[in-house]
Design a protein around this nucleic acid. Structure first.
Lengths: 218, 218
DNA sequence: AATATGAATGAACGCTCATTCAGCAAATGC
DNA sequence: GCATTTGCTGAATGAGCGTTCATTCATATT
């Protein structure tokens, strides 16, 4: 969860380390998203970040370190930005709707970075891939918990919590991954709305349906 | 749809061309799936395929050509193997169930190649990416048509055909993409079964439910 | 048997790119 | 005011890669 997670730096001042790393990772995400990891050179990253090539090796062990922290930034953003969107809310269905919306909104903000995470996670060494996969699992757990709460209160009836959770997550990711197919048919808001009709409404109980219509969440 | 789609070869004999290309693409898919496109060298491919490096350039213009034909092989397999699984069937719900099962089975057979298609399509030049995306769209259309038939006969009631189609496709792909998460919880057959409970059963009409239970499809 | 053709080889070439390092500038310590 | 440390630079290095091509081999043709 900390900023580094075992990437080492030659520079001692922690503030400077996180500032520089942020600067470099931001530039890297822009380039990786546009051109892919392999087609992006460290020289390009240094130019985009406005630093020298040598500097990068003061803050990262090698090029793979940059990719790892870039992906971690994406996953950390999910974990940081989604929960605040629903922890204040009272009604479980409200929370669920807000969680789905929040996930789609974050994906929309990080559209190309999300695609990057899909494409590049596998090219990390196993030990690091697991860290990223765990972060994803934790974010999924947020959904699962809210979903379980809805079920516990008799608002939803679902055949398989875990797989439905994955469908929510996939639905959100698809907004980035299949943007080439969706772009001319939906805007973000209508996409979210259709998500509710497809992945929440069919599973509402009698009671759930009443609340859902009253709350007019999505 | 033809084998080549504009990749040129120095060799004239068409049988030999397709044999050699198959041999090389098979080897490439194995390596690309394991190590990624960028980390795989043409020298490695030639060794894996049991030919010389020079030979590869008699059958492909450049390394990108190999990737293109590798991805095309995956998408063509989808298009070739799924329809036969349901065209003989009478009842639309039977077809839908068979289509979902067929898609999951094909993905299971091409698991690492499916992951490759997800990861690498974006690194093709635009013109070729479009060819791959069109192939995907055609396969999706198969689902959409069967789905429309079910709806037309009053067996299903779905809020959004297109997006539900994507959920089917995503569900199948997820078997490959999220295998690290699913492997110890489901086998292929139970995964397919859960897919039916999540993505078909909630949308059955009264009539549809009766038929579905009678047919015991998934 | 002599010749021609097309397939196959793999060493060599040139280029890209990750990584290093000798040196500069500024800050800090003595 | 000198010495030392820290942050930083960017040209240089060298390994690895995609691609080429002079050559060999196998088969067909005359």
């Amino acid at each position: 969860m900390a900023l580094s997670d075992d990437v080492e730096s030659m520079v001692t001042d922690p503030d400077l380390v996180s500032k520089r790393r942020g600067q470099i990772v931001d530039a890297a995400v822009r380039l990786f998203s546009k051109q892919g990891y392999a087609r992006t050179s460290v020289q390009q990253i240094s130019k985009e970040a406005g630093v020298s090539t040598g500097l990068i090796y003061q803050y990262f062990g090698d090029k793979d370190d940059i990719l790892f922290l870039a992906l971690k930034l994406v996953l950390d953003t999910y974990e940081r930005d989604i929960p605040p969107q629903f922890i204040g809310l009272d009604h479980p269905l409200e929370k669920l709707g807000a969680a789905l919306r929040a996930y789609c909104v974050v994906v929309d903000n990080l559209r190309s970075a999300t695609v990057l995470a899909y494409r590049a996670t596998r090219s990390l060494p196993v030990r690091r891939r697991v860290i990223i996969e765990n972060a994803e699992t934790r974010t999924n757990q947020l959904f699962k918990d809210v979903l379980a709460e809805c079920i516990g209160q008799g608002l939803l009836k679902v055949p398989n919590i875990e797989l439905l959770t994955y469908q929510y997550v996939h639905f959100s990711h698809a907004w980035a991954l299949k943007h080439w197919a969706f772009n001319d048919k939906y805007d973000l808001e209508s996409y979210i709305h259709e998500g509710g009709r497809l992945l929440i409404e069919p599973f509402l109980t009698e009671q759930g349906r009443k609340d859902w219509e009253r709350l007019a969440i999505i």
